[in-house]
Amino acid sequence: MQGVVGVFHHMDAVIDAAKALKAKRVGDLTVYSPTIHHEIEDALDEPISAVRRFTLIGGLLGWTFGYWAAIWASDYWPLQVGGKAIASWVPYTIIGFEMFVMVGCLSTVFGMMILSRIPRLVLNFGYDTRFTHGHYGIWVEAAPDRFGEIESMMKQHGAVEVRGER
């Protein structure tokens, strides 16, 4: 992995630089920001997160499992209460709902981790610890022969520090 990392002090500068680098198609872009800024998301024009698919599948599996577990256990060990059916769907809705929430939430978190590619073992490459403090940044993965072009574009848009990493 090789590329150029730029450190920015201002949000509009990083957005302008990201737009320019994206238009030039110099390489894969990663933009760092200390918090969520939807302006950056808009500038990069990324698709909507696919986390929702994990949520839907997890929720449906949890709901199904909750009902199934309650019905199966009641059928296996039948306990007649108050003349109610052995498998009563009304009280079992509580079990179904709780499992829906539990599995749906956990699969949502799992989906976020998969899509964000975390846990990450190698942290330092193309990264600067100032990105969690107050600075913005851009990492462009590119061949060394394009480093000069990328560095000058970043500086032109207000980068306070630019360095190549290989």
Binding site: G111, M112, S116, I118
Partner: peptide
């Protein structure tokens, strides 16, 4: 978990947080 404040992480994180809130 090796979180680095990347745009990819924030994008999925924001969506996850919304769904967790909707479940909770």
């Amino acid at each position: 978990l090796g979180w680095r404040n990347t745009d990819r992480e924030w994008r999925h994180f924001a969506r996850m947080y919304l769904f967790l809130a909707a479940f909770a």
